[in-house]
């Protein structure tokens, strides 16, 4: 890599977490977590309840100091120069940090002030944050009288009002109804066009619907990290299922690119392809040529859900191998 390219890469690195640990009494909530977030990414932090997602996000946002490890925001160490680092962050905690007795405009104006938005920019910042979050019509309403979905939007508006480079959202759709969830997801996708977003969730479909990269956390450390595009590509032909009316001996199916063939029942075979190979075409043409009576040929992808369940329910030993694979 040339010097220029290195500079460019480090410039794009908005969040860099090195060896984060967080210990609560005897309980290690986050254990040696390393995370990097580049400009333009929407990173989904996935994990079962109690995996350490919120603790991680609280440490990234500066609300919590790590027991050990370093967090850098935009190249600035958050423990050394907290003000400058926090300037680049917008954070929505698990519960929206709103004041129920204030109106939306009052509240957001205050948020703009404490986030250092200059006086002459406040009115336009307020307008654009309200527009982005669909709050134009509720500016004068008291926050406590708004529905949960709108309160969540106010929370998100608070996180983006100062146009931070990184937006950290902790379970942004929890407790909302399906329509609100769709709206918030759309909002997050829209925000992702101009901001870098990191969001946590224990809902898989949410991550798949909004994120460009997924990180799975279990027991306080990362067990999986992959872009969704790469995930779709590698999971392309994980397993092939073939159903044949006139089933031959399993060995006859071993065409080029097939590693293993298992006969399940009633002429159904499970075929494990060699890494990187896609023998579906060869199998189909052989089946036609030999007159096996091909009735079904399907590739079975490993879905995010399977990966998630596999990684978070199995014992520690398989977790380590999985994380090696992922890396």
């Amino acid at each position: 890599m040339t010097q220029h390219a290195t500079d460019h890469a480090s410039k794009d690195l908005l969040i860099k977490a090195d060896g984060l640990h967080k210990r609560y009494g005897g309980h290690l909530a986050v254990n040696d977590l390393n995370l990097e977030l580049r400009k333009g990414e929407i990173l989904g932090l996935l994990g079962p309840n109690g995996a350490g997602k919120s603790t991680t996000l609280r440490m990234l946002s500066g609300c919590l100091a790590p027991t050990s490890g370093r967090v850098q925001i935009n190249g600035i160490d958050i423990s050394e120069n907290a003000k400058a680092a926090k300037q680049a962050i917008g954070y929505l905690p698990e519960r929206p940090p709103v004041y129920h007795e204030l109106s939306v405009d009052e509240y957001l104006t205050f948020c703009a002030k404490v986030h250092g938005v200059a006086r002459y920019e406040r009115a336009s910042a307020l307008l654009s944050a309200k527009r982005d979050c669909g709050l134009e019509h509720v500016g004068h309403r008291i926050i406590g009288n708004l529905s949960k979905g709108y309160q969540q939007r106010v929370g998100i508006a608070q996180a983006i009002i100062h146009r931070p480079e990184v937006i950290i959202l902790d379970e942004p759709t929890v407790g909302l109804d399906p329509i609100q969830i769709r709206e918030i997801r759309k909002l997050i996708k829209d925000l992702g066009e101009h901001h870098t977003v990191i969001l946590s969730s224990h809902i898989l479909s949410e991550i798949q619907a909004t994120c460009s990269r997924v990180v799975i956390i279990n027991n306080g450390h990362i067990v999986f990290s992959e872009t969704l595009a790469a995930l779709a590509a590698t999971a392309m032909a994980e397993r092939i299922l073939v159903a044949l009316r006139h089933a031959p001996a399993p060995d006859a199916l071993k065409v080029e690119g097939v590693e293993n063939v298992t006969h399940m029942a009633d002429g159904r075979f499970r075929i494990d392809p060699a890494p990187g190979a896609d023998p579906r075409e060869a199998i189909a043409s052989k089946a036609v040529a030999e007159g096996w009576g091909l009735v079904e040929l399907a590739s079975e992808r490993k879905t995010l859900e399977e990966i998630f369940v596999e990684l978070t329910t199995s014992d520690n030993n398989s977790n380590t191998t999985a994380s090696k694979e992922a890396a």
Partner: peptide, 11 residues
């Protein structure tokens, strides 16, 4: 209410 986080994450 969790609003303390607003101050803690603000500059």
């Amino acid at each position: 209410s969790g609003s303390l986080d607003l101050y803690l994450s603000a500059p």
